Amino acid sequence: MEFDFGLTALGEQFHMDWRYSGNTPQDVVRGWAEVSGGDEGSPEDVRLLHEDIQLLLASSLSDEELHALWRVAATYYPDFPADGVEPPRGRAWLQDVDREIRPFLREPVDAAPASRGTSASAQSAVCALAERLTPQRELPLEPLPARAVIAAVQRCATEVGAALAFRFLLRAYAAYDSPVAADSWQAFEELNRHFGYGKFLLLTIDYLKEG
Rank of each mutant, 00 (worst) to 15 (best):
Q26M: 09
Q26V: 02
V28P: 03
V28H: 03
V28I: 14
V28Q: 00
V29W: 06
V29L: 10
R30N: 10
W32L: 10
W32V: 08
A33Y: 09
A33K: 03
E34D: 11
V35H: 09
V35T: 14
S36H: 12
S36D: 11
G37K: 03
G38A: 11
D39V: 13
D39W: 11
E40L: 13
G41L: 06
P43H: 12
P43Y: 09
E44I: 12
D45C: 06
D45M: 11
D45E: 14
V46Q: 11
V46S: 07
R47I: 00
L48K: 13
L48E: 13
L48T: 04
L49F: 13
H50R: 13
H50S: 15
E51K: 13
D52Y: 10
I53T: 03
I53P: 00
I53L: 15
Q54F: 01
Q54T: 05
L55V: 01
L56C: 06
L56S: 01
L56T: 04
L56F: 11
L56P: 01
L56N: 02
L57S: 06
A58D: 15
S59E: 12
S60L: 10
S60T: 15
S62P: 08
S62H: 12
S62E: 14
D63G: 10
E64H: 11
E64K: 10
E65H: 12
E65K: 12
E65G: 02
L66M: 10
L66P: 02
L66I: 07
H67T: 14
H67P: 00
H67L: 06
A68D: 06
A68Y: 01
A68K: 02
A68H: 04
A68C: 13
L69Y: 08
W70D: 01
W70L: 02
W70M: 09
R71V: 02
R71E: 02
V72G: 01
V72S: 05
V72F: 08
V72T: 13
V72M: 09
A73K: 03
A74P: 06
A74D: 04
A74G: 10
T75W: 09
Y76P: 07
Y77W: 07
Y77P: 00
Y77S: 04
Y77K: 05
P78M: 04
P78F: 05
P78C: 07
P78E: 05
D79F: 09
P81R: 09
G84R: 09
G84L: 10
G84V: 04
G84N: 09
